[in-house]
Simulated scan of single mutants.
Amino acid sequence: MHSPAALPTVRLLCVEDNPDDVELLGLALERADPRRPYLLERVDDAPAFAAALARDFDAILCDFNMPRSRPMRPCRS
């Protein structure tokens, strides 16, 4: 019997001020698809988010209810 090809890692950027929420997300993803590897990177402020955008991610998950943050406000350079 042939082993199935390894599934590609899904790279997620989590814009989240609560590390417990990111941990819960990771557990939910593992439960939903235990064969697929996930890599979650957490940032919790605008400068870290801007820096993270220089790297490759498959998706960005954003908490819209963070202190000192208005995600719908346009970014200024």
Score class of each variant (00 low, 15 high):
2 H>L: 15
3 S>K: 13
4 P>N: 06
5 A>T: 03
6 A>N: 07
6 A>H: 02
6 A>V: 02
7 L>G: 01
9 T>W: 04
9 T>D: 05
10 V>M: 09
10 V>R: 07
11 R>W: 08
12 L>R: 06
12 L>M: 11
12 L>A: 12
14 C>N: 05
14 C>V: 10
14 C>A: 15
14 C>Y: 06
15 V>C: 07
15 V>N: 01
15 V>T: 01
15 V>Q: 06
17 D>R: 01
17 D>L: 04
17 D>Y: 02
17 D>Q: 11
19 P>A: 13
19 P>G: 07
20 D>P: 00
21 D>G: 03
21 D>E: 14
21 D>I: 01
23 E>D: 11
23 E>L: 14
23 E>R: 13
24 L>Q: 04
24 L>W: 05
25 L>C: 00
25 L>R: 00
26 G>F: 03
26 G>C: 08
27 L>F: 08
27 L>V: 06
27 L>K: 12
27 L>R: 14
27 L>D: 14
28 A>N: 10
31 R>I: 04
31 R>L: 14
32 A>L: 07
36 R>E: 02
36 R>Q: 12
37 P>S: 07
39 L>F: 10
39 L>Y: 03
41 E>H: 07
43 V>C: 04
43 V>Q: 05
44 D>Y: 11
44 D>V: 03
48 A>Q: 12
49 F>L: 15
50 A>G: 05
50 A>I: 14
51 A>I: 04
52 A>R: 10
53 L>M: 13
53 L>S: 04
55 R>W: 01
55 R>G: 02
57 F>C: 00
60 I>R: 12
60 I>D: 09
61 L>V: 09
62 C>Q: 11
63 D>N: 10
65 N>Y: 05
65 N>R: 15
65 N>T: 03
66 M>D: 07
66 M>H: 12
67 P>R: 10
68 R>N: 15
68 R>I: 00
70 R>H: 14
71 P>Q: 03
73 R>Q: 15
73 R>E: 14
74 P>H: 09
75 C>E: 12
75 C>P: 03
76 R>F: 07
76 R>E: 15
76 R>N: 09
76 R>W: 10
77 S>W: 13
77 S>I: 03
